[in-house]
Design a protein around this nucleic acid. Sequence first.
DNA 1: CCGGATCCCTTGCGATACTG
DNA 2: CAGTATCGCAAGGGATCCGG
Lengths: 118, 118
Amino acid sequence: MTCNPEFQTDRKKEMMAVHDAMDVLNGKWKIYIISSICHYNKRRFSDILNDVIGISNKMLSKELKELEVNKLIKRTVLDTHPVTVQYELTKHGKTLQTIINDLTDWGIRHRREITGKE
Amino acid sequence: MTCNPEFQTDRKKEMMAVHDAMDVLNGKWKIYIISSICHYNKRRFSDILNDVIGISNKMLSKELKELEVNKLIKRTVLDTHPVTVQYELTKHGKTLQTIINDLTDWGIRHRREITGKE
DNA sequence: CCGGATCCCTTGCGATACTG
DNA sequence: CAGTATCGCAAGGGATCCGG
């Protein structure tokens, strides 16, 4: 197997990239939050709170903020009384959809692999 | 937006599937371990220990075992002195490659998105 | 309605030392 | 060489309450 320096740095770059991606998705609820917003296109805080079963407002708030920092979602404060806040995927956020779909498909196949043979 | 029961259960199934997939990849080192084995095809314990910078033998042992339980890798004890152990991806484990590649590509684009514009 | 602040428990993970 | 056992810290995350 090759072992030259270039190969090493290439693999390091790959590792970094995967790490970047995983970092964004990291957190117990992030994918579910994205999935909720994505499905409804636009979604309010309290609605997501209902969609994602089991999440607390603290965690929802925290992970939404992280997603916003990573430019995956856009946060809009609506001028209502009382104030409501709307979230939607950015263009960049939408590029995650295929990833999530692939993960879903793989998860289904994986479950079959594990449960179907033992 | 639709709200019928079927749609609800469909989404729950999706959520479960994503959760299954994420569960398998969960752990600080798992992707790097897979990546190492995958690249070399077959790889020994101590070699992976060197490939994955920073990992301890305890964590390597633990995550390898989890990967084996999930049937992503196959563990083979070689009849040498002292004993060495070889790991390789199963057929099922290899189906993760495309996922990891996609994650890599997305990570690169994401980094550009974040650093390139602010 | 949307979140921030606090408290507390659980889990993940690192360091180190030890065994077949 | 390939793990296992023990300890201990630090981060993650739940429950609850508070404020704009």
